[in-house]
Simulated scan of single mutants.
Amino acid sequence: MQAKTELQARARELRLAGRTYDEIVAELGVAKSSVSLWVRDPPKPQKTAEQMRVMNESRWEPHRKARDLARQQTKEAAVRDIGRMTDRELFLVGVGLYWSEGSKCKAHRPQEVTVFINSDPSMITVYLAWLELLHIEPERLRYRVMIHESADVAGAEKFWADLVGIDVTSLDKTTLKKHNPKTVRKNVGENYRGCLVVRVLKGADLYRRIEGWWYGIVLCAKRPA
């Protein structure tokens, strides 16, 4: 009788610890019906936060896979929509790209310079292809990295130099942004490489043409069909 009482107590302890009926049966070597009778009073054990996380991950994993597949298929179809660009199409894309992201002459800063700054390598790639289309000689280009001082500066410099096809020593002096501990930055991690500044030497005339091209696009957009 004492042995049975000890088994009952042990079964309750195991149940309260979160063990399943099958696990208790295996450990105590008793019938499942006995375990069910012995532990029916204790409350159903609560799952831990980690167990709940694993359950949620398992439940949503098929949906995430289906969503990611649909997203990838949409992107691939969109790539096929573009096909091969003509020189004129690249020309127009480049004008819009510069006017969105490039330096512009302002009333408070009447500087006619051609400077493009971006953190997206694909934007830099398209911009450089556009400059090549315009017959801007590589010798007229200067590159400079802008990055937070707390980041991997050397790694970023090598990344951008490799992207544009120059030696790291050919980069202008990197501009380091002071780190403010009070600011919660999102642009962190190994993929953070700051921005690349692309400057065209003697770029005033090019800037004037870019501004004219852009307003030419605006005028065409305004005209009735």
Rank of each mutant, 00 (worst) to 15 (best):
G194I: 06
D205K: 12
L134I: 05
C105Y: 10
C195A: 10
C105M: 11
L28I: 09
L97N: 03
G165C: 01
G212C: 09
N180F: 11
L90H: 06
R59I: 15
I136D: 05
S100M: 13
V95R: 00
Q111A: 12
C105G: 09
P110I: 05
L69M: 13
R12L: 08
E132T: 07
T175W: 09
G18A: 12
T48N: 09
V54R: 09
P45F: 08
Y215R: 15
W213G: 07
V35F: 10
V153T: 05
P224T: 11
A26C: 11
R19D: 04
E50F: 13
R80F: 08
A3Q: 15
E101I: 06
M123L: 14
H63D: 13
I82N: 05
V145D: 01
P224V: 10
M1S: 07
K4M: 02
G165V: 00
W214E: 11
V113M: 08
V95D: 04
N56M: 15
R142I: 02
T114M: 07
A11N: 03
E137A: 10
K186H: 04
S34E: 12
E6S: 00
A161Y: 00
P181S: 10
R64E: 13
E57A: 15
V145W: 02
E76W: 05
T86R: 09
V184I: 06
L28Y: 06
L201W: 07
H63M: 15
Q2V: 00
K4V: 00
I217D: 08
Y127P: 00
D120M: 11
E61K: 15
S122N: 09
K158Y: 01
V198W: 00
Y143T: 02
R15T: 13
R67V: 08
T48C: 09
V200G: 01
S100P: 04
A161S: 04
V153A: 04
S100H: 07
S36R: 14
G96F: 10
R140W: 04
R142W: 02
M85F: 12
L37R: 11
E137W: 04
V188M: 03
S150Q: 06
N187C: 02
E23N: 03
A49K: 14
E101N: 12
D87I: 09
H179K: 08
G102N: 06
A151W: 00
K47I: 12
E132Y: 04
S34C: 13
L196C: 08
I166C: 02
